[in-house]
């Protein structure tokens, strides 16, 4: 059975914390800021590392071309995307 979106979000936080030590990400559990784009916390190098980390953590493949800033607007949005990928794998 696939993890809940909340559980995925927690796992994403751990992966993200390895890409950055920004306290707003690694320490605050209520982080809801944008990960890329305006006012975001990840540069292009950290973003690629984060995506690689997500693929390894969840054993999924994410297509760079289809990832949009919307997917990285909040951790919740990203968790929803990962949840969808995991659901597809189950089917």
């Amino acid at each position: 059975m696939t993890d809940s979106i909340e559980a995925i979000e927690e796992r994403l936080k751990r992966v993200l914390a390895e890409c950055t030590t920004l306290p707003n990400v690694s320490e605050k559990s209520d982080f809801d800021g944008a990960l890329v784009g305006e006012g975001a916390v990840l540069d292009s190098v950290a973003l690629l590392q984060f995506v690689l980390g997500i693929e390894t953590e969840f054993s999924i493949l994410l297509d760079d071309g289809s990832l949009t800033p919307e997917h990285f607007k909040t951790l919740r949005a990203l968790a929803t995307l990962v949840h969808g990928s995991l659901e597809k794998q189950v089917q």
């Binding site: 890409c19 950055t20 030590t21 920004l22 306290p23 540069d43 292009s44 950290a46």
Partner: peptide, 10 residues
């Protein structure tokens, strides 16, 4: 540019 912005703050 984004790549120059510190990723780690102490």
């Amino acid at each position: 540019a984004d790549y120059k912005v510190p990723r780690f703050f102490d």
